[in-house]
Every structure is written in C-alpha cells, then in structure tokens.
Design a protein around this nucleic acid. Structure first.
Lengths: 230, 230
DNA sequence: GCATAATTTTGCGTATACATTAAGTTTGAC
DNA sequence: GTCAAACTTAATGTATACGCAAAATTATGC
C-alpha cells in the first residue's frame, strides 16, 4: 500500500520524496541514524541534498510506518525499540507469520512454487556452514518475506514486513552475540516440509514455535547485553 | 504511532495538516468521498479551505494507512474495498483480535477493569432491544476497540483499529441489510465471561468464531447485494 | 477521415518565503 | 543568587512560486 519504498520495476524517474523515504529508512535500519537521536528537518535536508519539503513528506510517511516520531521543534526522533516493544512486535509477528505459513500450506504448492523458499534455505545452510552470519541474516530475511508472500494476503505481508523493519536493528545488533542459528535452520526445513506436504496445522505450529524461540533468544540477549533499547 | 488522528487531550491548537487528515478520513469513512472516486489536490484543498501543502501531507499519511492511493495527475483515489480485500482484512482481524482477547483473559482483569467493556455490551443489548442499528454499530465498534485496548499491545491495537477503518464502509453499507445482530451479542457476552474467568483458550476461540461468522455474513451480504466493491 | 506531430494546458513535485510560536537567553527586580 | 519577564533565536507549519512533464487539444500531412 505505501508503494513508496517498493523498488519500481518500471524505471520511473523516482520522485525526490520517494528517494528521501528510501534513504532515511535505510539510514534508520542500518543504525546510521541511531535510536533516540533527534534530527532537524533542515539538517536532514542538507544531508540528503534536497529541500525540506520532500524530507518533511518522508518523515510523515516513516512516522506512519512507526520508524520515527516527528516532534515539533525537537526534530525527528528515531524511534527506539525497547525490549517491551520487541515483545509486542514479536507477538504480532508470531501470529501473522504463522497464519501466513498455514495459508501457504493450504494452497497445495509444489516444489516449483516453493523454489525460491528452497533457495533461501539453501543459502542459509551454506552461510551456516561457512559461519557467515551476515549472509545468513540476509537469507533469513528473504526466507521470511518469501514465506509471507506465499501466504497470499497482501495486507498481512505488508504489516509483517513493516514489523520486521521495526526490529531489524535489534537483530543486527545481536547477530554476533547469538549462538550460530542451527536450530533456526532446522525450523525452516521443517516448515518447508510442512508446507510442501500441505499440512496446515503443522506449518502453523512449527512456525509459531520458531518465532517464539526467536523472540525469547532475542530478548534474553538484549537483556544480557544490557541494551534497554536499540 | 501516527498520532495525527488521536484526539489530543491537551487542546494544542491542532495543525492544519492534522485537521486535513481528520477531515479527509471522516469523509472517506462516511462515504462522503466515495470509493474509486478521484480528487485533485487542489480540489480537496479548496474544499477544506486550506492550501495544497497540508492536503498533500494528509494524503501521504492516509496512503500509508491504506485508505487511499495517490495517483499523480489523476488525483487521489479513495481505495475501493473489494470482497477479496474484505477477506484479507478480516483474516488479519480475526487473528489479531483473538490474540488480544486471549491476552486480555490472561491478565486476570476483575469486573472493575472490565467496566467499559460491560458498558458497551449493555449498550448493544439496549440498542438491539430498541432495534436501533446505528446505536448498535457504534457500541459494537467501541466494544472491539476496548477489547484490543485490554489486550495491552499498542501496535496490535493500532493495526486492528486501522483495519477496522478499512472495512467500516462495508459494515455501514450492510447495516440495514443484515439480520438483527442477536448472535453477535451472544458472542460478546460469552467473550466477556471468558475474559473475566481468565479462560485464555476459550476467549480466543469464542472471539475467533465470532469474527469468522462476521466475515462470512458480511461477504455473503455484499455478494447478494451485488456490491463488487465498496 | 485518421493518425501523428505540434501546441497548449494543467496538475504535480519541489523549492522557497514567511509568519508563528516554542525554546533559549538575557535582563532586572527582589 | 534566584525567579520571572522581556526579548531573541530558530524551527516549524503553511502558503506560494515555479518549472516540468503528462494529458489534452489542436493542427497538419497523408
């Protein structure tokens, strides 16, 4: 619905506002603009080499997406994600992704339909073998977004992707502090099998468990690392 | 998070943009701006008695909320809600509201905590007795939003409220074509009992059933009425 | 007549101007 | 020295200006 960040296939000459959304978003997700930090419109405009107008429009959009808060006269504040926030987000993610998994299992996809999903799993396994955490994280993200795509509910997919964005910083921050995601990979394979065999219940349960564990791991890690927010 | 439409308790002199969001939103929800219709920025600006700037900002926000689409040079299009959209939305609503219900049941609320919820149920019963459908719909809306509030997950509440907005037109359009919502009221009472007695599973199941029935009723009605979109 | 090219119109995207008002600072009274 | 009032500064909210490109319209060639 907010097609502002969707990479256009038609190379429409992309509006400055869209560019601002894109760049600000990636600056937030990468941590280049850190949590709790305030940034004036004019500062951001200068930084992006454009006038305040597109920056303003972009911040409004990103506020709707929950990535930042516009605080008049204090500047735009990158929304910090607390452990409680993480719990909120993961709770919703658990529910919605499991639903997507269940739906995916119900459509009777064959191996061809699941090719992309299989490919992301392979990439994760390769990355795990090579102990390349960055590559693993990238593949994991692709796995989850392909999963919700297979669930064929556009709105659900949008929310899930948005929520994943909201906690992405936490995941990258803990990427090297966590144990190697062996269990995660097992979960993914199990889910793949459940979907392929059309087992709706199992798909849902497997994924629910997966997300619950992920959440627990993440919150424990953040607590251990003493990160009250991120 | 998008606190643009939240009615401020401090009577801050409300920005024009916020006003535009509010007014456009209510024009969309009430059907004053009908689905599929296109409206130029300048036209809307004139209509609201303000310049293009706040209107533009408002439309961007409302686009993020999924209520309209900004289509350059054709004007903003009020997003039509098709039956398929309804299915998508209700599927997500079912899942998330049930989760909220389950959570609410888990918090061990007593009668005092549930006073507002009880009050909305009473209003629905009175309205039903008086066969006042408008009053019933208003109370029903309040019931659902109080329910998600009791679920104590801010983000979940936001999404649910937003999704309810997205299908509100459909509900108002069918309000007089549907049978009197007797069953609905029973469901609400059953849910109330489940929450009060702390029965997490039952709360979840009761509400899931409630939403599934509501969805079915609505989609059937729309089909029967020949409304391909609304 | 029809299709295509030239021309005009129009709505949008972006920059900029400007008034407003919150925040910060100085001044002055006690 | 502290507090408050007056003043200054600065960032925002909104309006406006303006160029560009998409549509629409008219003109032109066949």
């Amino acid at each position: 619905m907010p097609d502002y960040d969707s990479q256009q296939n038609e190379p429409r000459p992309k509006t400055t506002t869209a560019l601002a959304v894109e760049r600000l978003k990636s600056m937030i997700l990468s941590g280049e603009l850190s949590a709790r930090s305030d940034h004036l419109e004019s500062e951001l405009a200068a930084r992006l080499g454009m006038s305040r107008t597109p920056v303003r429009e972009a911040t409004l959009v990103l506020q709707s997406l929950g990535l930042l808060e516009v605080r008049p006269r204090k500047g735009v504040r990158i929304r910090p994600v607390t452990i409680d926030d993480m719990k909120e987000v993961y709770e919703v993610l658990t529910e919605l992704e499991s639903l997507a998994a269940a739906r995916a299992a119900g459509f009777g996809y064959d191996r061809t339909d699941l090719a992309i999903l299989a490919e992301t799993i392979e990439r994760m396994e390769d990355a795990l073998a090579a102990e390349n955490r960055e590559a693993w994280a990238a593949a994991d993200e692709d796995f989850h977004s392909e999963l919700v795509r297979l669930g064929r509910n556009q709105r659900l997919a949008e929310i899930v992707n948005n929520f994943n964005d909201q906690v992405r910083r936490a995941r990258t921050a803990t990427l090297y502090a966590r144990p190697l995601p062996t269990r995660s990979n097992e979960d993914h394979s199990a889910l793949f099998d459940a979907i392929l065999s059309g087992d709706v219940e199992r798909a849902q349960e497997v994924h629910r468990g997966h997300r619950i564990r992920a959440r627990q791991l993440l919150t424990e890690l953040l607590t251990k690392l003493g990160l009250r927010y991120i």
